[in-house]
Amino acid sequence: MDIVVLIKKVPDPNLPEQFVSISDAQDEVVLHASSQYSINLYDLNAVEAAIGLKESAGATVTVVTADDASADQYLRRALAMGADNAIRVELDDKSRRDSFKTAQALVSALKQKSIPSLVIAGRQSSDEDAGYVPYLVAHGLGIPALAPIVSIKSASERTINVGKLADASIDEYELTLPAMLLVSNEINKPRTPGLKGVMAAKKATIEVVASEPGGVAGVPSKYSPKKGQRAIEATKFIEGSDEDKAAALLAALDK
């Protein structure tokens, strides 16, 4: 099985609020220079799922991102976890903010190779939380997609059976490959790479593919501060014993 994993560099999801501001022209979100970045956490689940399939069923795992060289460390982390190859699709900052351009760059890079049998991505990225790029990539590759995936039950060269989260159940689906899976964090616990893997990943070659993002672009975004918080007159603090507090809790619940 030939698996491609899509990953993305994102601002640290626990970035303090005062590090986030909006440009004067309101056309971009500006992060403080000392902001930290990380790999999108769901993408680590995606890498782990691919490596799990490699170990159980045999597969070649290629991890792909659309970014500049600052994202190489996250590709290397995936290599250290056990991915076989890494590709960086060179994409400028402005195009990376556009779902359509990002997807077009990824699709054209993937189409230069053969279409993978399985593409795995995180269900959404913690910056925009849109969860759109993987679906645009799936559409560009002409393959079906399903989310959010919380388990992989079995896999063969032609089909894969997965658990998809629904409101009150986990639904099993069988997909004919090739297909795109968007995974959620329930699917696994991403492994911590061993020292040997980390050392090997440091020396690994990252294939760099140029992109010429053309075609459709998104409409321009305009940013504004978040909505004001829920307005309350005053918080009524309950003093006294645990019994008193329990009684207040039940009273609030009409019990």
């Binding site: 986030v20 925009e128 975004s221 940013y223």
Partner: peptide, 8 residues
């Protein structure tokens, strides 16, 4: 977007 810190 951005963990609800910003509106788009």
């Amino acid at each position: 977007v951005m963990g609800a810190m910003v509106q788009k």
